[in-house]
Design a binder for these strands. Structure first.
Lengths: 157, 157
DNA sequence: ATAACTGCAAAACATTTGCATACAG
DNA sequence: CTGTATGCAAATGTTTTGCAGTTAT
């Protein structure tokens, strides 16, 4: 995800705080620290990476709080949770980000993002056929890059 | 997935056996039992369900062997592994099955399958843009059914 | 014969939970 | 003050692994 300006981050921060207030949840130092760390991160991360980064910044929060706060951020749509094939969830900040899907290299695990308007059309059609209200989707494509710059490229591909 | 005829199952069984032979893997009773159970199952299942079903059919195989054999079946494309948001993997037999994607009801977890040719077009385009050889994809849509027959339908939707 | 397979139980892994303590409102 | 959040460590649920014994080829 593209870098956000300081202003944008402030806007998101107050959204988060508004959300907490609206749900009668507390604004704690830990939640603020986690929010900052998430919004300073410019790509996909997992809970443990986030925990590690906080720790190395001397921002001591427990793993439990990291998981708890990530869930809050997901609930208020400021973070998206992804499941890329493996059991470990990946997260990504989502404020004002253009809807996009992912292309994953099976050799080096590099994540690429793409966006195709036809997906929305398919969503609408599926919603109509099945009489569903679709809240979100996840489209992941897996493969091997044919370029030479894939560091872990397997010879067989 | 639609039911397969006895003949079709035999064809798949020999595919599996050919695969084992080609990889210098052994044909064991356990692998045969697991194969049968998988191909008698007509929808999505997880490793533990399969293990339980085998057990209740007095086909005693260990969990380790179930996992191992499922992986072999995935490797030779006779089974697909899905990750539907939760950490537990779901499996589905895949022989000669039309490529399809999934629509999941967030209220009752019911799985619906759909198929849209435009996805192939998107795949091709993404492959070209990123210079990838795409081996597979997963497209899952999540939502709430608007029909009354969703048993666990939440009032708020 | 011998290398691969199996079952078992233990380990690994991500995530959740219970509970005593700390602190925001 | 009061109840919610926190940290810790223990529990959970799924999947993997190590190893001694078994079996297909």
């Amino acid at each position: 995800m593209a870098q956000l300006s300081k202003d944008q981050i402030e806007t998101v921060r107050s959204r988060f705080n508004d959300y907490l207030r609206s749900q009668n949840l507390r604004q704690t130092v830990e939640r603020a620290l986690i929010f900052d760390e998430v919004y300073e991160t410019d790509d996909h991360f997992d809970a443990d990476e986030l925990y590690g980064r906080l720790k190395s910044n001397n921002a001591a929060v427990s793993r439990a709080t990291v998981y708890n706060t990530l869930e809050l951020l997901v609930d208020c749509n400021l973070v998206v949770r992804h499941q890329f094939g493996n059991k470990q969830a990946k997260f990504e900040k989502s404020y004002r980000y253009w809807q996009h899907d992912h292309l994953i290299c099976l050799d080096c695990n590099k994540l690429n993002e793409f966006c195709d308007p036809r997906i929305q059309t398919i969503r609408d059609m599926v919603a109509e056929i099945f009489d569903f209200e679709i809240s979100h989707h996840s489209l992941n494509m897996y493969g091997h890059c044919k370029k030479d710059n894939c560091p872990d490229r397997l010879v067989s591909h």
